[in-house]
C-alpha cells in the first residue's frame, strides 16, 4: 500500500525554483497495475523516485505499508528499498563488467545471502526469464530485450512488493518491448504492485489504472472514475 499526501518536490535551478511535484495525493493499493503518462518534464520520474525511496520529498507525507517512510534514516530507507522495491530503468543499468548471472546476483549479495543459496536462486531466475543460455554473457554481448530481462530478473530476485518501471521499453524495439511488458505483467499477476511510467499510449493502456501528469500535478487518475473504490 502506497499512500502519498501533499508530496512536493522542489529543485533549485540557479535562482529559479522548479516545482517537479506539487502537492501530489495518491493512493496505490497492493497488487495494483498503474501506468503513469505525461509530457516530458511533468514529474513522472521524480514521483517514481520518491515512491522508490531514492529521493525525499520537500513537503508531504509518504506511508509505505503503513509505515511513515519519509522520516526513516538513510540506512533504513536502503533496507526498505532492498526488501520491497524493484527498480527497472529505461537504460537497464546493468554493471558492464559483470555477467548476466552476476548482475542478477547483486541484490542477493547486498542482502547477505550465502554463495551456495545465491547460486540456486540465480539459476532459477535465469530459467524463469529465459536467460539460461546468456548467463555468462556480459551486457555488451546481449540484445536490448535480453538486457532488460536481466534487469527485471535482478529487480525481482528478492520478490519485492512493488516494481517501479521508468520507461522500461524506451530503449528497445516494439516487439521486445511488448515481450518485456508481458513479463512485468506476469509478475504483477503473482501479486506484485506494478507501476509503469511510459510515453507509449498503447503500452500505457494495458494497465488497470491510468494516471496522467502535467507540470508536477496529477491531472487524470481513472480511479476517480470509479468512486466506489475510494474508501
Amino acid at each position: 500500500m502506497i499512500y502519498l499526501s501533499g508530496i512536493t518536490r522542489l529543485f533549485q535551478m540557479g535562482d529559479q525554483e522548479v516545482r517537479a511535484l506539487s502537492g501530489i495525493n495518491l493512493k496505490i493499493a497492493s497488487g495494483e497495475y498503474v501506468s503513469i503518462m505525461g509530457p516530458s518534464g511533468s514529474g513522472k520520474s521524480t514521483l517514481l523516485n520518491i515512491i522508490g525511496l531514492l529521493d525525499r520529498p520537500d513537503l508531504g507525507r509518504y506511508e509505505l505499508d503503513g509505515i511513515d517512510v519519509t522520516s526513516l534514516s538513510e540506512i533504513e530507507q536502503a533496507c526498505v528499498r532492498r526488501k520491497k522495491i524493484g527498480f527497472v530503468f529505461q537504460s537497464f543499468h546493468l554493471v558492464p563488467r559483470l555477467t548476466a548471472a552476476e548482475n542478477i546476483e547483486l541484490p542477493l549479495i547486498l542482502n547477505g545471502i550465502s554463495p551456495t543459496n545465491r547460486k540456486s536462486i540465480v539459476e532459477e531466475a535465469l530459467l524463469k526469464f529465459d536467460l539460461s543460455n546468456r548467463a555468462q554473457h556480459r551486457p555488451a554481448e546481449m540484445s536490448g530485450g535480453q538486457r532488460q530481462r536481466t534487469a527485471i530478473a535482478r529487480a525481482t530476485i528478492l520478490r519485492p512488493t512493488a516494481i517501479l518501471a521508468d520507461e522500461p521499453t524506451g530503449n528497445i524495439d516494439h516487439r521486445n518491448g511488448t515481450e518485456v511488458m508481458a513479463l512485468l505483467e506476469r509478475l504483477h499477476h503473482t501479486g506484485t504492485t506494478l507501476i509503469v511510467v511510459t510515453h507509449d499510449r498503447e503500452l500505457g493502456a494495458r494497465a488497470d489504472r491510468h494516471i496522467a501528469m502535467r507540470d508536477g500535478e496529477i491531472v487524470m487518475d481513472d480511479i476517480s472514475e470509479r468512486p466506489n473504490e475510494i474508501e
Binding site: 528499498r81 532492498r82 522495491i85 543499468h93 547486498l110 529487480a155
Partner: peptide, 16 residues
Amino acid sequence: TSEIGLLKAIGAPSAD
C-alpha cells in the same frame, strides 16, 4: 557514478 546509483537503487547502504 551510474553504477553507484544502481547499487543504491537496489538497496545498498552507503556503508557498503
